[in-house]
């Protein structure tokens, strides 16, 4: 029997890759650094997902259960790869738990890291309790607690969502668009309006990128049915008058300064390259692209090829991706591994 495929990271992409391989009877080993599988949607406790509206714990939780039930998938949690050597068909990876894994190929599914809002101090995160991130609001909703101001647990009457926090900003060296946060924000805005119909929700944007079919289902719907207000302005600063948060900026469409009190300010945080990427790149001997994500060497011939033959990559490790695209890439990388193996045999 040939060697298993090593999958690094057990988020949506890694789970999809493992499932595909299991389908054709190919063994795999998932090495996940956290104590459980599921990736960002599970680890960060997301609520209802875009675009299906299914709860993350059901949708992604279901993927986890499916993989855990496969006898051909071995799961190692709380572990990282520390050393890596060999050639296609014949790799050896040493793990931080002391074990070693012989592998035929590798699929890197190590995902992204949430932007840390502390790096944009002018927007008040870390200074004011009621300045939160989209991840925190997701958790408020998914835990069943509901959207409340952290400082005193009150129901907010006015919420401001600031887009592109940690994205599209040369000042902090992040030029990319995180792709999903516009849609996630309009989704969250609708969820807030649903739970608290008296609460006014404002979204401050530079561009709205609810790409593709999300235009109708999120941007238009949130405006037309949920009366979410969109204002074209990049906020200058978030301060406080002791009672309310004060948001300052310029409404650029009407050329007017704005100073508006809010109960809660939400940062639509972006997707950073995984903080582990320099280490992963060094250990596996694969290149990163200019922003620090893992470089995809071949876009058309073999899905998810990296700069090193036999090592593949899928999901948000390659750049900001949605869950469904990450899953598709996971499946595609599994397929690429299989065709790579066939090429090796015939060579």
């Amino acid at each position: 029997m040939s060697k298993p495929v090593l999958i690094i990271g057990g988020g949506p992409a890694g789970l999809a890759a493992a499932h595909s391989l299991a389908t054709v009877g190919k063994e795999s080993v998932i090495v996940e650094k956290e104590d459980r599988l599921g990736g960002a949607p599970i680890l960060s406790g997301y609520a209802k997902l875009v675009p299906t509206g299914e709860w993350a714990k059901d949708a992604i939780g279901g993927m986890v259960k499916r993989v855990e039930a496969e006898s051909s998938v071995k799961v190692v949690t709380g572990t990282k790869v520390t050393d890596f050597d060999g050639s296609p068909g014949n790799f050896t990876a040493k793990l931080s738990n002391g074990d070693a894994v012989d592998a035929e190929a590798v699929i890197v599914c190590s995902g992204f890291t949430h932007f840390d809002s502390v790096n944009k101090p002018e927007w008040g995160f870390g200074t004011y309790e009621d300045v939160v991130t989209t991840t925190q609001v997701e958790q408020m909703i998914s835990s069943g607690q509901g959207v409340r101001c952290p400082s005193d647990d009150r129901k907010p009457q006015r919420v401001a969502i600031l887009l592109c926090v940690g994205s599209r900003d040369r000042q902090i060296g992040r030029e990319w668009c995180s792709k999903i946060c516009c849609t996630v924000s309009s989704n969250i805005a609708m969820e807030i309006r649903e739970e608290l119909p008296d609460c006014h929700v404002y979204i401050y944007y530079m561009d709205i990128r609810t790409f593709g079919l999300y235009e109708t289902k999120y941007y238009w719907k949130s405006q037309e049915e949920f009366k979410v207000k969109y204002i074209k302005a990049r906020i200058a600063e978030v301060t406080s008058d002791g009672e309310k948060l004060i948001v300052k900026g310029e409404d650029t469409l009407v050329k007017r300064p704005i100073t508006i009190p809010f109960d809660m300010v939400v940062h639509a945080i972006g997707m950073d390259p995984n903080v582990d990427n320099p280490e992963i790149s060094e250990t596996l001997g694969i290149d990163l692209e200019t922003h620090g994500f893992i470089d995809v060497a071949n876009r058309y011939g073999a899905m998810g090829a990296t700069s090193r033959p036999g090592v593949y990559v899928a999901g948000s490790a390659t750049g900001p991706e949605t869950i469904d695209d990450s899953i598709a890439q996971g499946h595609a990388a599994a397929m690429a591994v299989l065709s790579g193996a066939r090429d090796l045999k015939t060579a």
Binding site: M206, D207, A233, R234, I235, A236, E237, K248, G249, E250, T252, K255, P257
Partner: peptide
């Protein structure tokens, strides 16, 4: 420039005179 207004928001002179608007 993509017209976000951050310059005008941050501007020292704009704080005194609204008509001083670099973004515009």
């Amino acid at each position: 420039c993509w017209q976000c207004g951050s310059c005008t928001n941050a501007c020292t002179v704009n704080a005194i005179n609204e008509d001083f608007n670099p973004r515009y």
